[in-house]
Amino acid sequence: MKAVNKVDGRAFPLGLKNVDTDVIIPAHYLKTISRIGLGKGAFETIRAQPGNVFDDPEYAGAPIIIAGDNFGCGSSREHAAWALNDMGVEAVIAPSFSDIFSGNAFKNGIVTVVLPQEAVDRLLEVAKTDPIHIDLENKVVTTPYQDRFAFEIDDFRRNCLMNGLDEIGLTLANADRISAHERTLAQSQPWLVPVAA
């Protein structure tokens, strides 16, 4: 997974509360075979509205979404994180996130930044005209106007994001132990390797 130290750029000033996984990616995109390409279905219902932020050329290709409370609520579908990834979103700023979504986002290298509503309101304002800067190393969000909002993030997750470690990468860091277990098994339970049929 790509290492993320900072996310820099324009942000979609979405602002909505309770953006659920059905809004992020509607159910009819679920019978897919790829996590790539889901971006085209992302926020389909919002995009159906004229003048929506996602189709505004001002924000084209923005790597950040700023939203209201409880972002990512609803089903556990990992497709929501895949869809954001596919549309190039690297971070979401909101006052709160659903647990399952933030877990899925983390697994897919997306930074979830929790800030108080006042800070989010200020960032929504700035985002209309200027870029936002998320500094993961120093745990702070800044703007070109001297705004400075510190945020908290689990050290384990921050470390993983900054080093580009996904869960599989972390487990593979333990590959020696896995190999040792396999060597023991080959001795104690040799029948575990299936007979080639």
Partner: peptide, 13 residues
């Protein structure tokens, strides 16, 4: 789930 399927494929754990 699918991400665990990937985890098992890659790590057997």
């Amino acid at each position: 789930g699918t991400s665990e399927v990937e985890h098992v494929l890659a790590t057997q754990t």
